[in-house]
Amino acid sequence: MIIAAQEFQRLAGFGIVSGLLVFARVGAAMVTMPGYAQGFVPVRVRLAVAFAFSGAIFPAVADKLPAPEDALDGAAMFAVELLCGSALGMFLRLMMLALEIAGMMIAQSVSLAQMFGGADSEPMPAVSHFLLMAGLAFAAMLGLHLRVAEALVLSYDAWPAGGVPDAAALEAWGLNGVVVAFSLAFSLAAPFLVLATLYNFALGAINRAMPQLMVMMVGAPAVTGALLLLLGLLAPGLLSVWHGSFAAVLADPFLAAP
């Protein structure tokens, strides 16, 4: 009976340590994860979500967690889990930053970059707010929580618990995410940038032909109104393109990972 009690105590201790390891990775991811880590989400909600995700994915990764004697010791193990969770959250957050960057490009092209900006912890133009909130709502409707849970489970294959990720491979993976985010942002803003550029060239030609006409007083409201109308027409298509890229990243977030 004493041997059985000792074995039970050992298994219980291992279960607690394993649960804390999972919570460390999930909690770190929730601090930077798109949607759950936005400035308007209360800290208590993030903590509750982290506990919920930890309980959901623990059964799926229990067999991938290291035994105490096979893993790094103490604080080092938890530090590695925090690093892995933060890296995953930031990588996925880059896709939301693509919407924000695209909104900033569009706002700059229509002379609204300094108007109607946000006053919260993440100030940005109104166009960026619109695209970001629409993208979050779109992703939530299409099962963002399920895809995030899948990505967290996959992270234990890319970065086994108890091991240190390769720094060079981690750097290449992060740079690949930055390239993808900026490429996507420019692709989303490209129609507005092209139209604004052509319109400004037209205004320059008119100004050369009619110097007495104050073309900026006439042209600026026109281009702003036209591009805002274009944003209303193209927003559903832009969000569909963005979500396709976001879904592809969520389906295989560790394509370039070690």
Rank of each mutant, 00 (worst) to 15 (best):
A24T: 09
P258A: 11
M124F: 04
A151P: 03
L184V: 09
G244L: 01
Q114I: 08
L255M: 02
P165T: 13
M217V: 09
A235E: 10
G35R: 00
A190P: 03
L83A: 04
D166A: 05
A48K: 11
F40W: 04
V178M: 15
M141R: 14
M105S: 15
S155V: 01
A76W: 11
L47A: 13
F78V: 14
A52R: 03
M214Y: 10
G244N: 06
V127F: 01
L239G: 12
L142H: 10
S245K: 12
P42N: 07
A158M: 07
A226N: 00
A161R: 09
L239W: 08
D70N: 08
A4S: 13
G89H: 03
M96Q: 10
L184M: 06
I106Q: 00
A149V: 01
L21N: 09
L239Y: 09
A56D: 04
A247V: 04
A196D: 05
A28P: 03
F246I: 07
G19Y: 14
L65D: 09
M124S: 15
A185C: 06
A172E: 14
G143R: 01
A196N: 07
P34L: 03
P160W: 05
N200K: 10
M1S: 13
A139M: 02
L184N: 04
V194G: 06
D166H: 02
L184K: 03
V61R: 06
F40A: 06
L88P: 10
L47W: 07
G35H: 01
M217W: 06
F116Q: 13
A161E: 08
T197W: 05
A181P: 01
W159N: 02
F182E: 11
L238S: 04
G143Y: 01
M104I: 12
S111I: 00
V26M: 05
A29I: 04
F138S: 05
E100W: 07
L184I: 03
L227T: 15
F91M: 12
K64L: 13
A172K: 14
G35D: 02
A257L: 06
A139W: 04
V22I: 15
A29V: 00
H129V: 15
F182C: 00
A76E: 15
P236T: 01
A185Q: 10
P125R: 02
I16W: 08
L88F: 05
M210A: 07
H129R: 15
G89Y: 05
F130I: 12
G163R: 02
L228Q: 06
A235F: 08
P59H: 09
P123F: 05
L227G: 04
S18V: 09
V215T: 11
A102W: 05
P221G: 08
A158Y: 04
P258H: 06
P258L: 01
D73E: 14
P68L: 09
F182H: 10
A248L: 03
